[in-house]
Amino acid sequence: MSGIVIGLIVIGAVVFLLALWVAGVYNALVRLRNAVKNAWSQIDVQLKRRHDLIPNLVETAKGYMTHERETLESVVKARNLAQGASDKGAGPAEQGAAESGLSKALSNFFVVVERYPDLKANENFLALQEELSSTENRISFARQAFNDAVMTMNNRVEMFPGNIVAGMFNFKKEAFFEIENAAEREVPKVAFS
């Protein structure tokens, strides 16, 4: 009789501790996921800023770059694609791909701008350029925080024994955010003058 009672108490205690542990891990996972979400929204704000700046930039450049319709169009197209991805709430992976396209189009654009000294001296253009480069800096700094949050989350989701709890409540690995900048990967050109 008393043996059964003791056994029941022991089992009950073990179950209770286990439940406590599961609750703890669950809460930690929720916290991490919210941190990832928050970090993403920080990036999203900056991406929107980037998308909003580009029409103005193109509008300013249009007057000077009469022979560069293709370049301008490709910038606008890439920008619309990126904004479309942002509007429908595509995740970091898809958004990153779209933003990479935009970065590439922009770097082409700025190469072409070199041929238009008047445009380069335009005050409005310079202001927009400062805004744009600042926005890119912000994106890269915010990306750092986001990728840190994602890594912490993914470690928790994948590592034993957290992965058991994560599997039970369907916590998924999060994707990293990466903007592939074509120009960054190329070897810088060397000019002897």
Binding site: L106, S107, F110, V113, E114, K120, A121, F125, L126, Q129, E130, L132, S133, E136, R143, Q144, N147, D148, M151, N181, A183, E184, E186, P188, K189
Partner: peptide
């Protein structure tokens, strides 16, 4: 992102 490596020497997109 994690090790905080030095920025790659990126060609300036806005030389103006």
């Amino acid at each position: 992102a994690t090790a905080g490596q030095a920025r790659a020497p990126e060609p300036e997109p806005e030389p103006g």
